[in-house]
Write a protein that binds this DNA or RNA. Sequence first.
DNA 1: CATGAAATCAAATAAGC
DNA 2: GCTTATTTGATTTCATG
Lengths: 149, 149
Amino acid sequence: MTELEQIDQAITRELASDGRCSFTDLAERVGLSVSAVHQRVRRLEQRGVIRGYAARLDGESIGLPLTAFISLTPIDPAAPDDYPSRLQDIREIESCYSVAGEESYILLVRVASPAALEDLLRRVREAAKVSTRTTVVLSTPYEGRSPAI
Amino acid sequence: MTELEQIDQAITRELASDGRCSFTDLAERVGLSVSAVHQRVRRLEQRGVIRGYAARLDGESIGLPLTAFISLTPIDPAAPDDYPSRLQDIREIESCYSVAGEESYILLVRVASPAALEDLLRRVREAAKVSTRTTVVLSTPYEGRSPAI
DNA sequence: CATGAAATCAAATAAGC
DNA sequence: GCTTATTTGATTTCATG
């Protein structure tokens, strides 16, 4: 992990907020030739600085209007700590964080309905042998803003 | 909010996991002509189904190795509920969720160091007149996976 | 709404500095 | 590692079914 220099910072910042921006535009914005930018972006991808690109989708429109956080607490504290792999096939789970604090993991999930959430919780408990605490999201004032770099 | 038909679902699914995919590739993957796909993507963007595109960045590489959840509880329950706008200029906050449950809001933040987190917490408390509970992320097994559509 | 063709523009590679 | 030049391929518009 080596510090990003100015120009790479500028490129990642642009792509964080406008992931489909053309190399041509990018080159203008950061003040470099198109092929220089092209090389740098490829390098940032290879180094793993840029992990990929995603369209940000509206939950309502795609039929997944219900977002929730699910906190996991192991039932058996001596059980092996392999929760992420036990849960990775559950596609409603968009993110999985291992955390310090009262709980061991926090999941961010998106589902179609309360009934779907109920079913998801059952599957999570069964797959991971955990107890759960669920916090339903009422609204999302903002999400996925660009990092402060 | 009208149901997405099959082909638009396929397009959004592709772009969710590969946001920089060319229209040409997209057309092949969904089995339509390039210009038809082009029209549909523009339409999905205009309808707000696709809210934008983002590069997914590696926290370590961009100098923000510390991720945390901050839960907010209003100090004065009678105060106006304008926390998101009071906090929106704090760039370390990537997401802001209004939630049901013990707390009122959950923030997802990324910072450079424990000291930066301490400073951020001070600014959040001051700006929003809230008490905070912070859960530090130890690792992120996965994040931002494509929605289950 | 989809297609196919035409024109414009961008991406990708290579050569030279 | 940047630049310019070149080729290849993608984007975008438009006319048409």
